[in-house]
Design a protein around this nucleic acid. Structure first.
Lengths: 333, 333
DNA sequence: CCCTCTAGGTCAGACCATGTCCTAGATGTG
DNA sequence: CACATCTAGGACATGGTCTGACCTAGAGGG
């Protein structure tokens, strides 16, 4: 069995890595099979398993006639050993999610993406971008979309404490070049913001990520300053209020509050019940009204828009378009 | 700095794991700092780095006054070392994606999710489900959604070659219990299917995953049979044609084909240009018409639905609802 | 020019990792 | 019930290796 062609370097740590990867396959591995694949004796396998357990990765062993080893959930997160397809799948998934900015995991998600893309082999890299190109049209609809690359470059610069240089096109159209000490990425609703210290202007600024072009880390290290307002999200909120980038809307649904709440994204807040069995939702959004209109339509309940006027207008236009689509001029082919 | 509490077991493989995790942070690590954190001499760090390089993980070193080590993209995918938040972010992202079934990465994505959830510490597990609960209402809208747990259980059973038992509620409402040898998960458009060998019926079957309840692996191992039709996707296609679960729709847009194509998901195919500058899209979908209607509305171009009648009706209803929402009865508060 | 960093050689000694023996216990099958 | 199959783990001799201390060389930045 243990043939002569076992020319493995017999390096212990390497074997442990390999073992860890084998055990992550969701199946049971008998000790004998592991021994064979790793090119060591059964005893050594058992010792290696012990080793992994000591490292905090709980390997569960089932005894009996077709038992075996498998890695189960433990206290710490073991290093994930992914094959090519899985790595691509995760990268694509995270990039798709990066556009959405799911509250609560937004920044961690970008960090994970940055970590993954840092080590993603080149041959997989264009598979990811190809797939992503074929996928994103699903979700994006309005302009102002954010390139995942931009987010990962920023996340890396934040983690690596490197200065970040980029071109910025402000709301009024003026283009500037910025040299910053990036502090934190924050997402609100659908949009990403970078909170950073602007070196040239010697003050803190927030930047809309979709208005950033060609960001790159300069390589120069810096010691993170303290933000005047403790929390980056808080700072962003204040900064947005100053500039009034958000608008408030109010919608009345002809459905009970709890039914509507079920389908509402959490960050919009909860609707308040009304006396007649309906409910009203008042919230602020930073998105385009188009997007909000579609969102509301997707909820599947009759509703009435109260404000703002832009949203009313947008909903009216969308309704008109759909009605026309249904009635259809009899163009044939 | 290097306190006395460096009571690490000084185990070589453990240190390598730790080193790998440190190097995955997107920043530069000077050898001295690594030596300090790992509790070994600088020389040993250099040896460990060499070791990682031999294992196929390219560690890039920049010389000079503030150089250091960092892990870069190589030929193989190194084990990903994630912190808690990143792991949660990936899990949430993949689960959200699992509903979507992005063509090309669908199955790998579920496999990755199964792998991750297999080892996800318990304390993170409910953070994931909480976040997911707060997130999915965004995308799901129509019924028949698939629980990510179901998919991961299935993926694990397939990989582990374990028999799978579940309750199935057929299209006509009849409920049965099935014992299967799961073969492959396939996604089409928005829906997931399990191709499996039904042990009791002694034949191959396809199951809609959203109609599966309480799936669990029995633990009994089996040797995978060969599918009569080589490809699982092919088998599913034939099986769906027999049952006619899809419908064909046809829509005319008043916008150039290339403009519309930009925002269309790839799996719907390309619209064909018409003489008048518009274009027509004919495609088949397995989704509900509601979802398709919203999809079409989101494209942002005027259009006309030609068939099927259900879609016309649905678009009309949606349009009416939106129109009413804009005109609004003057209910106030 | 200096400083800081990586790169790599050599050497002695401690240490550990391995395979080959054991025995014990759990589990499912004939 | 005995049997096969698996995990669990102790003992031990031996060869290999891993470490730190010491060295030199080279690259980059200020």
């Amino acid at each position: 069995m243990c043939g002569i062609l076992v020319s493995m370097t017999t390096d212990t740590p390497a074997r442990l890595f390999q073992l860890l990867s084998l055990l992550q396959t969701p199946r049971e591995w008998p000790g004998g099979e592991l021994a064979e694949r790793l090119g060591v004796s059964r005893r050594t396998v058992r010792r290696d398993v012990d080793r992994l357990r000591e490292l905090g990765y709980p390997v569960q062993a089932t005894k009996g006639s077709d038992g075996g080893y498998r890695l189960v959930a433990g206290k710490a997160m073991p290093p994930l050993v992914l094959d090519d397809e899985e790595a691509v799948a995760i990268a694509v998934g995270l990039r798709a999610g990066a556009g959405h900015a799911i509250e609560g995991v937004d920044e961690a998600s970008v960090r994970a993406l940055a970590k993954l893309e840092q080590v993603l082999p080149a041959r997989l890299r264009h598979r990811v971008s190809t797939l992503q190109a074929a996928t994103t049209p699903l979700t994006s609809g309005d302009g102002a979309s954010v390139a995942p690359e931009t987010l990962t470059v920023m996340a890396s610069a934040i983690a690596g404490r490197e200065r970040l240089r980029f071109a910025y096109r402000a709301g009024d159209g003026t283009a500037t070049r910025r040299l910053t000490e990036p502090y934190r990425l924050v997402s609100t609703g659908r949009r990403w913001y970078l909170v950073a210290y602007d070196v040239d202007r010697a003050d803190w600024r927030t930047f809309r990520v979709d208005r950033v072009n060609e960001p790159f880390a300069t390589g120069a290290r810096f010691d993170p300053r303290e933000l005047p307002t403790g929390n980056a999200a808080e700072y962003l909120r204040q900064s947005m209020q100053r500039r009034q980038e958000t608008y408030t809307f109010s919608v009345v649904f002809e459905a009970p509050a709890e039914v509507v709440a079920e389908r509402l994204p959490a960050w919009l807040g909860a609707p308040e019940p009304l006396a007649d069995g309906g409910c009203r939702l008042r919230a602020t959004a930073g998105d385009t009204v188009e997007w909000l209109a579609v969102r509301l339509a997707m909820l599947g309940h009759p509703f009435t828009v109260q404000e703002p006027a832009e949203l009313v207008e947008c909903v009216r236009a969308l309704g008109a378009r759909l009605t026309r689509a249904a009635d259809g001029d009899p163009r044939r082919a």
